[in-house]
Design a protein around this nucleic acid. Structure first.
Length: 820
RNA sequence: GCCGGAGUGGCGGAAUGGCAGACGCGACGGACUCAAAAUCCGUUACCUUUCGAGGUGUGAGGGUUCAAGUCCCUCCUCCGGUACCA
């Protein structure tokens, strides 16, 4: 008998399938379309680990099944090639980033082919290629034309380690997303996209998406919509007359409890408000907090908040009270109006501050009508308003509406919705990115350069520095140009776009990757988009996924696409932990590569193990012993199927035939449902159970020759998407198709519902919930019949000892529970 | 703190409110072998046992139900996210 040799099978079938164009995007007008997308990777020098396989293998399995189900399938792959990593690697090695990218993508592609991830390589795209990035630039201009791109020289997040400015999303928690180092604030002129204009839609349209709850929650959290009110306090200053001091609050219902105001140290009106007597101290405080990073401020504040009195007093427009104005760095410059009214009775932070500096605490909210006392701690719950003038007696909820309206009609405030999300800082003073297609003209200002692509020029050195200058600035020939509008000498914008710009529309490019006169062919996009299934890691929850949704909505508004959400269904594969209980990483030296595993166990065993190791979304630890287990499974299939390839007809065993057909139907049903719902682990387990059953009954194969052959065929077709090589080989050896056919182009097997009907079923008999007996009854038996059989059992009679059951519960097909 | 998710054998994990631990790994015993590997067969939650079986058991404690890993309440632990957002 033939020995199982995975290497031979891989070398035989891989080229054959390529010749047959197995993974080419379908275009049969009679079939429905299915677009499955993997997050396109940045091709790093480290190559793929088995962790990446948890993304690419399951999507490949889904696509193979979808093809067998009769869909046209689009499953493309491309490269997120622009960005920091390629540039850093290039600087380190002295190679050009384009060359680095070329080498790495080749390696990725080779590895993907090792485990036979079936992509349509005719549609491969590379975001650093001018044919691609000219359209990234096109979209920049679309945003610019729609007034959604602007320049500003506010404070930015800046990573001193990476020497790069970061968007808010990239610096969440004050930590650089790439190097995990602490970020600082720096003032540099930068380009922004006005994603805040889309905050409401980005939030509201999450609801309908088939996405993991945690990702949706993270986006909601990030957008952070809060309903509140702006109230204008007034301050009579020593030198600048009366100035208005708007504050933002979500608890206008507590305004009668406001006992002081606090301004962020960065507040522009702070110097004007401060009285001469306190000027020196306040200036010193501003300087001290300016020197701290946000993270340092937070850490320091845990030990106790700091702040200083300005000497000024603000008037609360609701009750005319004069309350002191302080500055403290627990109030943030970037949110709301950078000024708050402090209500120590009903806000924990204000309470802590009031206690430290001995400021008054006035209770104005009584939950359930009962004052809680606020000397020890703040009462943050809603309740009934007390000591609140004309609003006394209202509930927090109604008063928030009434008081905002009152403020509005009296001209000192209004209801206002605020968001946490900030505009997207998109420009980078980096070489390896898509140049921003803008020309700066002294007369015309920022003028779009519509002569695309604006090609990234070759430069001598692209090392970034702290100057805030792009390496492109040194390229005088390129920088100096003429204004497209007035023809006067002008200079090009030297910043490039962040990598996330490139990945904000790539899913559209795959529909028509070679389109030359537009970013995409609208007809093709209509055919394929939105993406039916998008799979990748959870790390892009508030970066790529929010940016891509934003661009899609802009395109919708521009009439370019007819959908507002790019990804209908999203799934995140779980992380793969290495054998040393740590995250796999090159620096820890614990990376397991598909290369070594394919050499040792073959692609089929690796693919099986990756989907069998546990639930798709779960974080799982790598176990080579587990892989050895799926390798044994493949060998057992091989041996059993060849062993029973030629059957000697020994006369029909009707009983076993029925049993076999039942097991087959059960397995087909289970595997079909499990693959469709990403429960590959239990699907594979069902196939293993079935194989165990076949193996235990191999001696009877000759007595059910016809069914056995059907079983073999269906089994191979069920397993084909997960283990493509061994199934293809056995399918041919067993003669289920000619040499020109493939098991992978077969129709997915169907189960026969009638075969699932059993003649007799086993029923558990419980007495007070404890199992005491098992009975076999005809499948269609009624509750009465089942009850009768159960009660007549000798064993049950013994337990009952003549007593009459009070109640008997019968669940047909499952159990009988006797309550004695 | 807040948001999201999860707690089941030695391990990864299965279980439409209806037989807890499928399937796999590991371990143990056996067959084959001069021996080993490979392969095949068996055992494998815990306690008690007269070997028939009996009892206990899904993070803890309550509850609903004939019946709870699953539903409800209170709490604990872990993972992920976020955090002075007024």
């Amino acid at each position: 008998m033939n020995k199982y040799n995975f290497k031979e099978l891989e070398q035989k079938w891989s080229p054959m399938w390529e010749k047959w164009d197995l993974y080419k995007t379908g275009d049969d007008p009679g079939k429905s379309n299915f677009y499955c997308l993997d997050y396109f990777p940045y091709p790093s020098g480290a190559g793929l680990s088995v962790g990446h396989c948890r993304n690419y293998i399951p999507t490949d399995v889904i696509c193979r099944k979808k093809r067998m189900d009769g869909h046209n399938v689009l499953h493309p792959m491309g490269w997120d090639a622009f960005g920091q990593p390629a540039e850093e690697y290039a600087i380190k090695t002295g190679m050009h980033p384009a060359e680095v990218t070329r080498i790495n993508t080749q390696n990725y592609k080779r590895q993907m082919k090792l485990f036979e991830a079936g992509y349509d390589w005719d549609r491969e795209i590379n975001s650093s290629h001018p044919d691609y990035y000219r359209w990234t630039q096109y979209f920049f201009l679309l945003l610019f034309d729609r007034k959604l791109a602007y320049q500003s020289d506010n404070f930015q997040m800046y990573c001193p380690n990476c020497k790069i400015v970061l968007s808010n999303e990239e610096s969440a928690g004050g930590i650089c997303w790439r190097c995990s180092g602490e970020v600082i604030k720096k003032k540099l002129p930068q380009w922004y996209f006005k994603i805040t204009d889309y905050a409401d839609r980005l939030l509201d349209e999450l609801d309908g998406l088939d996405w993991p709850e945690n990702i949706k929650a993270m986006q909601r959290n990030w957008i952070g919509r809060s309903y509140g009110a702006e109230v204008v306090f007034t301050v009579d200053t020593e030198n600048d007359g009366t100035i208005k001091l708007p504050v933002y609050t979500t608890r206008i219902d507590t305004i009668y409890g406001a006992t002081f105001c606090v301004l962020a140290p960065e507040h522009p009106d702070l110097p004007g408000i401060t009285t001469d007597k306190y000027k020196k101290d306040v200036e010193q405080y501003i300087k001290a907090s300016g020197a701290k990073t946000d993270l340092e401020r937070l850490v320091a504040s845990e030990k106790g908040k700091t702040g200083i009195f300005t000497g000024a007093y603000a008037v609360n427009p609701f009750n005319g009270e004069k309350i002191p104005v302080w500055t403290a760095d627990y109030v943030l410059a970037g949110y709301g109006t950078a000024a708050i009214m402090a209500v120590p009775a009903h806000d924990e932070r204000d309470h802590a501050f009031a206690k430290k500096y001995d400021l008054p605490i006035i209770e104005v909210i009584a939950p359930g009508g009962a004052p809680q006392g606020v000397v020890e701690e703040a009462t943050v719950a809603d309740g009934e308003l007390i000591s609140s003038g004309q609003f006394t007696g209202l509930s927090s909820e109604e008063s928030r509406e009434v008081m905002a309206a009152h403020a509005k009609s009296n001209g000192f405030g209004k209801a206002e919705t605020r968001y946490r999300i900030r505009d997207w800082l998109v420009s980078r003073q980096r070489y390896w990115g898509a140049p921003i297609p803008i020309i700066h003209c002294k007369k015309c200002g920022a003028v779009p350069d519509r002569d695309l692509p604006v090609v990234l020029p070759d430069v001598e050195s692209y090392e970034p520095d702290d100057s805030g200058r792009s390496p492109l600035a040194a390229c005088e020939d390129w920088v100096n140009t003429i204004c497209p509008e007035c023809g006067a000498p002008a200079r090009r914008e030297t910043s490039t776009m962040a990598g996330f710009a490139c990945s904000s529309w790539y899913f559209l490019r795959f529909a028509s990757p070679n389109c030359t006169d537009a970013p995409f062919d609208p007809e093709e996009v209509k055919k394929w988009l939105p993406v039916d299934l998008y799979v990748g890691g959870a790390e892009h929850a508030v970066m790529h996924l929010i940016y891509a949704r934003f661009w899609t909505k802009v395109m919708f508004d521009a009439g370019m696409v007819d959908f507002t959400e790019p990804f209908t269904s999203l799934k995140n594969q779980g992380m793969l932990i290495s054998y040393d209980h740590q995250k796999m990483s090159k620096s820890k030296g614990n990376v397991v590569t598909p290369d070594e595993m394919v050499v040792k166990y073959g692609a089929d065993a690796l693919r099986l193990y990756i989907v069998f190791m546990g639930p798709f979304e779960a974080e799982i630890e790598w176990s080579e012993d587990g892989l050895a287990g799926t390798y044994r499974f493949v060998k057992r299939i091989w041996n059993l199927f060849l062993d029973t390839a030629e059957l000697e007809d020994t006369g029909t065993d009707e009983v076993f035939d029925k049993e076999l057909r039942y097991e087959l139907a059960r397995t087909v049903k289970k595997v079909t449902e499990d693959v469709d719902t990403f429960q590959f682990n239990t699907g594979v387990a069902a196939m293993m159970e079935f194989l165990n059953f076949l193996s235990a009954n191999r001696g009877k194969a000759g007595s059910v020759a016809e069914s056995w052959r059907k079983v073999q065929k269906d089994f191979l077709e069920l397993l084909a998407p997960i283990a493509p090589f061994v199934t293809e080989e056995l399918w041919h050896i067993l003669g289920f198709g000619s040499m020109e056919e493939s098991v992978h182009t077969r129709k997915w097997p169907v189960w026969i519902e009638d075969d699932l009907v059993k003649d007799t079923v086993e029923i558990v008999v419980q007495i007070k919930g404890k199992i005491r007996d098992r009975i076999f009854v005809p499948a269609g038996a009624s509750s009465e019949e089942i009850q009768k059989i159960a009660l007549n059992r000798e064993k049950i009679q013994d337990y009952l000892q003549g007593s009459v059951p009070r109640r008997v519960i019968v669940v047909p097909g499952r159990l009988v529970n006797i309550i004695a």
